[in-house]
Design a protein around this nucleic acid. Structure first.
Length: 900
RNA sequence: GGGCGAUUAGCUCAGUUGGUUAGAGCGCGUGCCUCACAUGCACGAGGUCAGAGGUUCGAAUCCUCUAUCGCCCACCA
């Protein structure tokens, strides 16, 4: 043992043990009817992902749950995988080929996809390697990818099933369009953010009387080029006379009608609103309602199209600038007011999205949402912390249809085929909401698992597939059962589904959690998981999200490199209060690093002094046969008490509590007290056995959060036979070894030691000076206890001898103080002044008389005596008598000092 | 405009269903390189629990309002 260094070095251990676990197949799970299953499906990280602190937290939590349940005897599966992340991955590869001056169109679809697959093969498992560094104990042999062959088949299957059920439809609507990614996005993918904008007041001249005009207010003046009406409120007196008249659209010259609709807010702007049916969701509705023209003024890349005449080809924001200038010039701009405006941003590239009219595929969500609301309301699925239930329900109850088609290449291609022959008859390529057709009933559209040979309607073989792919989330919402090869009725599926718990961050609730619940109920007729644990978001020390652009990222891999995965894991969990966001700084990782070192050194002490022959007894049996001293009984009781609390913390997902309990137990009770107490007699058999057993059990209970260091020390323990700690059973709580009374009584002993230490320092006594002390108390039980325990602990305060006194001693050559209701006297020969002590005692007397007064007031209160529970009254009575006893003692001591 | 969270020691946060003297880590001060650990040990200072009102025998804890900060949702042009 002597060669073991005094500092723990994670570099010597972490990779070594991870390899050992993998090689011995310790992560794998199989159907095992004799055991209960415990299963978590990983939130599949994007193939483009690199491990950030959010991942580190998320996966540490999952790994704690997984390792804990594995040790608890469950058949435990952590199902891993990665997500193809359509837009994100395509963007990455597009950037890559851009270095060669290429666009994806230059390569063509097939060549481009080939490049993406190459990229995926090369870099797609980066994050998996990083998860391994973190210690994640996933069953890697089951690793899935949302675009592997089997998975892709199922995605098609699901699309067709939903279509056949009438839950999927195609339609021309205003959707969120990202001009940079050039694809449609779902509402969830276009989160609104407030930005500083302007409200432009523009004069629209009336067609009949040229000198008169109506003023409209808009935040997007460029969209006026697509205006096909102006709307006012029907009861608005200012505009009543204009209803039905026409205005001339400036810059364009088009005559457009003034219509009246209650949708218009009279208080906003001028009360008159321009209507652009092709570029605004509200205007779209008005357009349909009043049969207005839908004029699209924009190209997919955000430049204006030929419908805008002289502005054709300009970027939307450049056009805005020019239009405003032009309006100014011709005196049709009344004013510009600063205005906060909330606009959608692409969640992938943060470009401002454009409400854009286009033909897309949608899923009808209301029918799917209904049962998913039920299961949460009925408590079949529980959110932790509970408050997320409300967020979930609120979203579900107001759910909108889900736009699932994306105009990108990387993804699951939509299994829809068109017949060119029939298309010529029925379908125009230009979106046109006015001629909305019920596409399902029209021939020329074939939704099919396989590419059809010929058109079932006209027999033509001129058939082509829809160019679009599906939203990434349209595959990930199937994750909890497709990973078990649904729709095959596999044994794994039966055994592991529903999974136990899903662990994720709040921003994923709508994207993924809600949709998985819907998919589970729709396709499996059962919930996908019982619990949803939502952890906080990792932020920087000022509360900002970590991002590259802010430069405030703390890289978990750097931390791991520096102090190890265990230290990272422990620190993260220690500072994460349940469900709260985490404000992180590098400083905060010290806790874990220091704790590793503490564990390491305590283990060194134990192992250096351990004789193998002493440790082969069972603790319980040993206790039955032998009379064990109170110190050893105390630490064992403390351990099992802690373990009990640990289990309850884990049950309710209070991970920081779990970390805290073990930290406190190990450092401040096992090391600070127990080991220090037994040190002089560390070779005695009771001490040998207990220190070994506690260390060994502690390692097991710590293993889920600090897998590497616990394994490293475990393997150094005698008689290990190469068994990994990770498949050892979780320590069993020995209820009969918990002695709460003893734990409390021990506090008194420690207080005496601490007070003595404190006095030593206060009176500046030489540290080598051995003390003689006297102890006095009226309590017979305490006298016995002190007599039996004090000899073990005296050395901690440099006490040479103690005596139990018959009465309070006179104060000559003594320092005397109260510890609880025990009078502690330290014998000193002319070494100290008593003035300080007197002051201290007087303060104490003051405080205690105040306490007594307060308690006496309490007992005069009849309401208290009548209404408080008997137990509380008894407690208070006891407290009062203790206080009085204490006051009496104090007075005696003080009187003694006065006599001097 | 709705909803949610936070406000406790210098900093970051715990504080179960209301019930002793409100805790921890870091930081700070003092003294120690004591033969497991200076990534350590011992001792210590530091709090009107954001404010106001209410319920209660009793409130950091429950209710109402207010203030500040943060997050989420919503089609206000």
């Amino acid at each position: 043992m002597n060669e073991v260094p005094s500092r723990y070095n994670h570099k010597d251990t972490e990779d070594k043990w991870y390899k050992f676990w993998e090689e011995n197949n310790l992560f794998s799970a199989t159907v095992n009817p004799s055991k209960k299953p415990f299963c978590i499906v990983i939130p599949p990280p994007n193939v483009t992902g690199i491990l950030h602190m959010g991942h580190a937290l998320n996966n540490t939590i999952q790994d704690i749950l997984i390792r804990y349940h594995r040790m608890k005897g469950f058949e435990t599966l952590w199902m891993p995988g990665t997500d193809h992340a359509g837009i994100a991955t395509q963007n990455v590869v597009e950037k890559q080929i851009a270095k060669d001056g290429l666009r994806r169109q230059d390569l063509g679809r097939d060549k481009f996809l080939e490049r993406v697959w190459q990229w995926k093969e090369k870099y797609g498992s980066t994050i998996i390697q990083q998860l391994k560094k973190l210690g994640a104990s996933c069953d890697w042999k089951r690793l899935r990818f949302t675009m592997d062959e089997a998975y892709s088949e199922v995605v098609k299957e699901v699309f067709v099933r939903l279509y056949e059920k009438g839950l999927i439809y195609q339609g021309d609507y205003i959707i969120n369009w990202c001009p940079r990614c050039q694809t449609a996005l779902s509402d969830e993918e276009a989160p609104h953010q407030e930005i500083d904008g302007y409200l432009y007041y523009i004069k629209y001249p009336l067609a009949s009387k040229f000198q008169n005009y109506i003023v409209v207010a808009t935040t997007r003046p460029e969209t006026m080029l697509g205006d096909t009406a102006v709307a006012v409120h029907p009861k608005d007196k200012r505009y009543k006379k204009f209803i039905g008249k026409e205005v001339i659209l400036p810059l364009i010259g088009r005559q457009i009608k003034i219509i009246a609709d209650e949708m218009v807010d009279r208080k906003f702007g001028t009360g008159a609103v321009k209507v652009t049916p092709a570029h605004d969701p509200n205007d779209y509705l008005l357009g349909k309602k009043y049969n207005l023209e839908f004029i699209n003024i924009m190209n997919p890349d955000g430049t204006l199209n030929e419908n805008t005449f002289s502005y054709t080809g300009l970027d939307r924001f450049k056009a805005r600038e020019l239009i405003v200038n032009e309006l100014k010039k011709i005196n049709l701009l009344e004013k510009i007011k600063p205005h906060k405006i909330s606009v959608g941003h692409c969640y992938r590239c943060h470009t401002i999205i454009e409400p854009y009219l286009s033909r897309q595929w949608f899923v009808k969500m209301k029918p799917l949402a209904k049962p998913a609301i039920e299961v949460v309301k009925k408590g079949k699925i529980k959110f932790y912390p509970k408050r997320w239930t409300k967020v979930y329900l609120n979203w579900m109850e107001n759910i909108q249809d889900w736009c699932i088609s994306r105009q990108i290449w990387w993804g699951h291609r939509i299994p829809v085929y068109y017949c060119r022959n029939c298309q010529q008859i029925y379908k125009s390529q230009i979106p046109n909401p006015k001629s909305q057709i019920n596409l399902r009933e029209k021939s020329g559209i074939i939704v099919s698992r396989e590419k059809p040979e010929k058109c079932p309607s006209c027999g033509s073989t001129d058939i082509y597939q829809d160019e679009d792919v599906l939203d990434t989330w349209f595959s990930s919402w199937l994750w909890p059962f497709v990973t078990f090869y649904w729709p095959k009725e596999s044994e794994d599926l039966k055994y592991f589904y529903p999974t136990s718990v899903l662990v994720t961050a709040p921003e994923i609730i709508f994207f993924w959690v809600a949709r998985m619940i819907m998919a589970g109920l729709e396709f499996m007729q059962d919930i996908p998981f019982y619990d949803v644990y939502i952890h906080g978001t990792v932020r920087d020390i000022e509360g900002r999200k970590m991002s590259k652009s802010l430069g405030n990222i703390i890289d978990p891999l750097e931390i791991i490199e520096h102090i190890g995965a265990d230290a990272l894991r422990f620190s993260l969990i220690m500072i994460t209060s349940t469900g709260q966001d985490i404000f992180l700084s590098e400083e905060k990782f010290k806790v874990g690093r220091n704790f590793c070192n503490k564990i390491w050194n305590a283990a060194r002490l134990v192992l250096m002094n351990l004789d193998e022959k002493n440790i082969s007894f069972d603790l319980c049996m040993f206790f039955k046969k032998e009379k064990i001293d109170p110190i050893n009984r105390w630490i064992i009781s403390r351990f099992y008490s802690t373990l009990k609390n640990v289990e309850s913390a884990l049950k309710y997902y209070n991970f920081n509590e779990y970390a805290n309990l073990l930290y406190h137990f190990f450092w401040h009770q096992f090391c600070d007290w127990y080991l220090e107490i037994i040190k002089p007699k560390i070779k005695e058999i009771h001490n040998q056995l207990v220190m070994y057993k506690i260390l060994e059990k502690f390692l097991r209970s710590l293993h889920p959060i600090m897998p590497f260091i616990t394994e490293e020390i475990w393997q150094k323990l005698p008689k290990r036979k190469d068994n990994s700690i990770m498949i050892e059973p979780w320590p069993h709580i020995q209820q009969e070894l918990i002695d709460k009374k003893l734990e409390k009584e021990m506090e008194l002993i420690f207080d005496i030691v601490k007070t003595t230490r404190s006095l030593r320092l206060e009176f500046n006594l030489n540290k080598n000076l051995k003390l003689k002390i006297g102890l006095y108390t009226k309590d017979k039980r305490k006298i016995d206890f002190i007599n039996s325990v004090f000899p073990y602990v005296m050395h901690l305060a440099g006490i040479e001898s103690f005596e139990i006194l018959e009465r309070i001693p006179s104060l000559e050559s003594k320092v005397s103080l109260l510890v609880g209701d025990v009078n502690l006297s330290i014998y000193l020969e002319g070494l100290i002044e008593l003035k300080e002590e007197k002051k201290k005692l007087s303060q104490e007397v003051e405080k205690i008389s105040l306490d007594i007064k307060n308690k006496e007031i309490l007992f005069k209160n009849k309401d208290f005596l009548n209404k408080a529970p008997q137990q509380v009254i008894e407690q208070e009575k006891e407290k009062l008598s203790l206080l009085k006893e204490r006051a009496k003692l104090l007075k005696t001591i003080l009187d003694g000092i006065k006599d001097l």
